[in-house]
Design a protein around this nucleic acid. Structure first.
Lengths: 334, 334
DNA sequence: GCAAGTTTGTCCTAGTTTTGTCCAGATAAA
DNA sequence: TTTATCTGGACAAAACTAGGACAAACTTGC
């Protein structure tokens, strides 16, 4: 369908005015012109009155260059790259940009500062403000803008995660109304849910069942995982919250999943959790790893170890493990 | 079917004076005339005394052009486009503001008639089959295709509604696994949630608070309502499920909503419902109507009448009432 | 570690195009 | 009568263009 087309081959016909390009890329018009003047980053066509007319291809280039810059690349270095080379650079960077420990291990010149934490903090403040004022349109706009500024994994970890924590905390302390929390949660449910459809699927992706066990009604963490792994070439089989262990196992079997990921948040000490996790582990084939994440996972540390489940320390850690699993599998087949 | 026509068809017969057009579109009368003078953006019919008479079609065009301008389009570029092309452009642009999993390239007028029931039945069977086989991709594909075939309101009523009922029934009878129901529900949550972002907003829309009361955890009905009313020029303030009456009232006040809509499904006889509805009605200003729908609404018929709440018999009935409310409001201003 | 050079975002001026607002006098509607 | 709309034109604000200046941040050389 058109969806596939737009993603895989980018339209090169010039038609967008500079203002729209600025809106979509998050760059200023001055900057877009300056980049053109100095490095010929893009060379837009012109209207009969000399107005710049950009193509979708140009916009995608600018968007990627912006992200590359955010990741610490220098403009001189990335300006001459083709779209494909740019994509490679950006996806390469996204693997390291947020993870501090990984960052220390590999060589990174001093200019490769990841996204300023202050900048993310500003974004989160703006998002919180739009929730307080019930400005839905602004909220959606900010989410979309945040996604333009950085790659999806970085966005989830530096903005969405902290935002959720902040909203939960504010509501608990009475600084925010329940109605505000509800509105924000409902919007985020739709927003995050749609993220995984941004990726294109070939049908060959390994599958991973993602859900929360019985009693765990909060699904946003699980949904974030679904969006995240889709970036790395997994096909999430997302079951929503509150799924009994038997059903998770049956689903993993029917879909031929290679892994299962659970999210535990609240209530942290639900007595059903040990039962459910034990049942799940016993019903699943032993070569299918079960990842247990979320804020409440640490409450069940001992159980998780005893059952041989995996408890990634961060979303990045989870990504890393899944990448290993995926690549091992490909080796095993070849 | 007379009801449907009156509600949803975009009338091409000219009858609105320029003042009303200005109010509905958020443009000034001078600007509307200037656009006509310079670019023939719309060419309204004239009364026998040369007064401009605009049709609903014209208003829709102007609304879309205003939004296209906000997105950074130039007037010269969008002025000559047909309504369909304009829809495409606006929808393409807004895709970058609000991410969606639904990307219908084909514009479906909101006034297309519903499909023959047999055809819908086939669609539903195909959807059910894709759920049973856990074929997520097929499921999404069928949903999108179904939406292309008919208008959004018709699609919700002839496909999504029956599909939800069927899935619920099949699971209850054990014909379908809980895992299947979960997968379908999670997908539908994302799909329906994204539907209201297909519409374009000018900022002048009257608002309606949509949610379910405390104890009612199923949100898909409420979400359908949100998608539905957005087609008719309302801005839904969607709060998700399980919202306490106090919070609904506070939210309605803060957002300046003109109406509230609640959905009741399960459990039908929750003892909290009477309390919550009574609280809500007493805390809301009396000129804000409260609509109560969903399969469980009939269980509370007497209560609803006593409190002076409104219980539309169908989604169409709800739309009709809201259209009346919206237009009364416009008269009140003019 | 400091100084000199480079890179990069922002801003300025001045001229052009595009777009929004306003006015005047005439006609029609309330 | 008062208010709303009409036409045609004037005017001004906003947006865009080209070229260049400038300062902050960063890199490099010593």
């Amino acid at each position: 369908m058109a969806t596939l087309e737009t993603i895989s081959s980018v339209d090169t016909s010039p038609r967008h005015p500079i203002r729209l390009v600025a809106n979509r890329t998050g760059l200023t018009v001055d900057l877009i012109r300056a980049w053109e003047k100095r490095y010929h980053v893009v060379e837009p066509a012109r209207s009969d009155t000399k107005r710049r007319l950009y193509s979708d291809y140009d916009i995608e280039r600018l968007r990627l260059i912006r992200i590359a810059k955010q990741n610490g690349r220098r403009l001189v270095d990335v300006a001459p790259l083709t779209l494909e080379a740019l994509r490679d650079v950006v996806s390469e960077d996204s693997r390291y940009e947020v993870s501090q420990d990984v960052q220390a291990e590999i060589y990174r010149p001093s200019w490769t500062s990841p996204l300023e934490s202050s900048e993310s903090a500003d974004d989160i403040d703006a998002l919180l403000f739009s929730v307080q004022t019930m400005d839905q349109h602004r909220f959606d706009q900010l989410l979309q803008e945040g996604l333009v500024k950085q790659s999806l994994p970085a966005f989830l970890q530096t903005v969405i995660g902290p935002l959720l924590a902040e909203i939960g905390e504010s509501t608990r302390l009475g600084k925010m109304r329940i109605a505000h929390e509800h509105m924000a949660t409902a919007h985020l449910r739709t927003f995050i849910g749609a993220l995984r459809f941004r990726e294109t699927y070939t049908g060959n992706e390994p599958k991973i069942v993602i859900t929360t066990p019985t009693g765990q009604l909060h699904e946003l963490g699980a949904l974030m995982v679904a969006a995240l792994v889709s970036v790395d070439g997994w096909l999430p089989v997302y079951l929503g919250p509150n799924t009994p262990a038997d059903e998770i196992a049956a689903c993993a079997m029917q879909s031929g999943a290679r892994a299962v990921s659970l999210s535990l948040t609240y209530p942290a000490d639900d007595p059903r959790i040990p039962t459910e996790l034990t049942r799940l582990r016993s019903q699943l084939e032993s070569n299918i790893p079960v990842f247990v994440g979320g804020s409440a996972a640490s409450h069940h540390h001992e159980l998780i170890n005893r059952l041989g489940l995996l408890s990634p320390k961060s979303l990045d850690d989870l990504r890393h493990s899944l990448n290993m699993l995926r690549d091992n599998r490909f080796q095993g087949i070849a």
